[in-house]
C-alpha cells in the first residue's frame, strides 16, 4: 500500500470501487456540504470534492473536503492547476494531508472563459501531468517541487482524469500512459454515454497493459431530462452523447425522464462491469446526490465492502 486511503484499500482488495462527487456551494454554507454528504454516506468509497468547477467560485475544495471528513466520509480532494501556482498547490496539499485527507485528483480545470470570472488570469504554472509528478515527488521522495526537503511527506493516493471521447482519439491512450508514467495511481474518466467508443479505448489501454499499472474508474452520469441530454450533447466540450440516448430520453413523457436517466445510468454500469480493465465507477450526479444511492443499489454495488 502506498497510502492509508480507503479508496486504495478497496481497489487493492479487488473490489469494484464506487466514488461520487460533491460540488461545494457558492457561499459560506457548510450545512449544504453536510447535506450533500448525507446522501452519500455508506454509499460510496470516496467523494470527489470539486475545485471551483466550471470555473465558478465556490467554497474551496479543501474546506469542503474537511467538512465531509468531519462527517465521516472519505473526501477525494480535487485540485486544478488553473487557479494557483506550485507554491500555493503544495501548501494546500500538505495542509490537506495534515487535516486527514489522503486521496486527491489532479486536473487542469475548465477554462475561465466558461465561468463567472472570465476576466481572471489562468495561472497554469504547471499542467495536470506535472501536478501528478509533483505530488508523487512530495510523497515518494519527500521533496518539494523546488527540490528542498519536505518533512513528514503527504501520503496521497494520486488520481487523474481521462477523457476517452476528446480528440485526437489516438492521443487519448498515449496521454493516459503519460499520466500513469507521471505517477497516477488511479483514473476517473469523463462521463461515458458512448460505451462502444469507451470499449475501443479500453481495448487499447489493456493492450498496453495500462490497466495493470493503474486503477481505472469508469465515469457515469444520470441524465435528469431531455434538455440536459441535448445540452451535454451539443454544448459541453469533449462530451460524447450518442443520438440514441437523446432519442430514448425523448421517448418518455417529461415526468418520467429523470427515471429513464437513472435507468440508462444503471444499464451503463452493468455493461461497463463486463469491460476488461474497469476497476470501479465514478458516479457524477451533478446536484443530484440524492439519486446516487438508488443507482448504486440497482447496479448491485451495495453494501460497500468493509476494508
Amino acid at each position: 500500500m502506498r497510502t492509508e486511503s480507503r479508496l486504495e484499500k478497496i481497489l487493492a482488495a479487488g473490489h469494484l470501487a464506487v466514488t461520487s462527487e460533491c460540488g461545494p456551494p457558492r457561499g459560506a454554507l457548510p450545512d449544504k456540504v453536510r447535506e450533500k454528504g448525507k446522501h452519500l454516506e455508506g454509499i460510496v468509497d470516496a467523494v470527489n470534492v470539486t475545485d471551483n468547477q466550471t470555473a465558478m467560485v465556490r467554497m474551496s475544495s479543501l474546506a469542503a473536503s474537511v467538512l465531509l471528513k468531519q462527517e465521516g466520509l472519505n473526501p477525494l480532494f480535487q485540485m486544478v492547476t488553473r487557479d494557483r501556482n506550485r507554491l500555493a498547490m503544495q501548501a494546500d496539499i500538505i495542509g490537506a494531508y495534515s487535516l486527514g485527507i489522503d486521496t486527491m485528483l489532479c486536473l487542469s480545470g475548465d477554462h475561465t472563459k466558461f465561468g463567472d470570472h472570465p476576466m481572471a488570469m489562468n495561472v497554469h504554472d504547471i499542467d495536470s501531468i506535472q501536478l501528478i509528478q509533483m505530488v508523487k515527488g512530495m510523497r515518494d521522495e519527500g521533496k518539494f517541487q523546488g527540490g528542498a526537503e519536505l518533512k513528514n511527506p503527504p501520503r496521497m493516493f494520486i488520481g487523474a482524469a481521462a477523457n476517452p471521447f476528446a480528440d485526437p482519439f489516438e492521443l487519448r491512450v498515449l496521454r493516459l500512459a503519460k499520466k500513469i508514467a507521471a505517477g497516477a495511481d488511479f483514473i476517473q474518466t469523463q462521463c461515458i454515454f458512448n460505451v462502444d467508443k469507451f470499449e475501443k479505448w479500453m481495448e487499447q489501454v489493456c493492450a498496453r497493459g495500462l490497466h495493470k499499472k493503474c486503477y481505472i474508474l469508469a465515469g457515469v452520469t444520470p441524465i435528469k431530462s431531455l434538455g440536459a441530454a441535448r445540452y451535454m450533447k451539443t454544448k459541453v466540450p469533449g462530451m460524447d452523447v450518442p443520438q440514441e440516448i437523446v432519442d430514448r430520453m425523448a421517448s418518455v413523457p417529461k415526468e418520467k425522464q429523470a427515471e429513464e436517466g437513472v435507468t440508462i445510468c444503471v444499464e451503463t454500469i452493468e455493461r461497463l462491469k463486463k469491460v476488461e480493465g474497469v476497476a470501479g465507477f465514478h458516479i457524477m450526479a451533478i446536484d443530484w446526490e440524492e439519486k446516487v444511492k438508488e443507482i448504486v443499489e440497482r447496479a448491485g454495488l451495495l453494501p460497500r465492502p468493509q476494508v
Binding site: 471521447f165 476528446a166 503519460k178
Partner: peptide, 16 residues
C-alpha cells in the same frame, strides 16, 4: 494552448 498544457491536449479538444 489556452491552458498552456505542456504534455498533450486537455479533455476539451474537439475536431481540432
Amino acid at each position: 494552448c489556452a491552458k498552456q498544457l505542456m504534455n498533450g491536449p486537455c479533455g476539451g479538444s474537439t475536431g481540432g
